[in-house]
Amino acid sequence: MLVHPDMMKTSSLIATSSVAPIPTIVPTPTIYEEAGDMGKRTLWVVVVLMAISSLAFYGMAWRVPVQKRLFHIITGFITTFAFLSYFAMATGGGIGYNKYTVTESHKRVPDTHQDFVREIYWARYVDWTLTTPLLLLDLALLSGLNGANILVAIVADVIMVLTGLFAAFGTSEGETWGWFVWGCIAYLVIIFQLAFNGRTAVENKDSKTKTFYASIAGFTLILWTTYPIIFGLSEGGHVINVDQEIVAYAVLDILAKPVFGFWLLFTHDSMSSTSPSLEGFWSQGFGSQGTLRVGDDDEA
Rank of each mutant, 00 (worst) to 15 (best):
N98Q: 12
L130W: 06
G144R: 13
N149T: 11
I120W: 00
T101Q: 12
L137N: 11
T103L: 04
K99H: 09
G93W: 15
H113P: 12
Y97F: 12
M160R: 10
S105L: 12
K99V: 07
Y121W: 06
Y125A: 07
I120N: 03
H106E: 05
P110D: 14
G94N: 08
H113V: 12
L141A: 01
F169T: 06
E119I: 03
I150D: 07
E104Y: 12
I95P: 01
T112K: 14
A153H: 02
V126Y: 02
Y125S: 10
T101S: 13
S172H: 07
L151F: 11
I159C: 03
V161I: 15
F166A: 10
Y125F: 14
E104I: 14
V117D: 07
Y125N: 05
E104L: 13
A140F: 04
G147A: 15
T129C: 11
V109G: 08
N98W: 03
G94I: 05
V158F: 14
Y97W: 09
V155Q: 13
Q114W: 02
V109Y: 05
A140G: 10
S143I: 11
V102N: 05
A88T: 15
N149K: 06
H113I: 06
Y97Q: 11
F87D: 09
T163C: 12
M160G: 10
F166I: 08
K99E: 01
L136I: 10
L137A: 13
K99S: 08
V117S: 06
N98A: 08
F169I: 00
D127H: 10
A88K: 06
G94L: 05
N98S: 09
S105R: 13
I150N: 04
Y125D: 02
Q114D: 01
T131F: 06
T131K: 07
M160K: 11
R118C: 09
W122G: 07
V152Y: 03
V161C: 10
L137R: 05
T129R: 06
T163I: 00
N146E: 10
W122R: 06
Y121M: 02
A153S: 07
I154N: 00
M89W: 11
Y86V: 04
R108P: 06
G92I: 15
V161H: 03
A88P: 13
A153L: 08
M89P: 08
G96W: 07
L142T: 10
Y86S: 09
D111L: 00
T91A: 14
T101I: 09
R108A: 13
T132F: 03
P110I: 15
H106L: 09
V161N: 05
I154D: 09
L151Y: 01
G164Y: 04
F169S: 08
V155T: 13
M160C: 12
D157G: 14
I154A: 00
L165Q: 01
T91N: 15
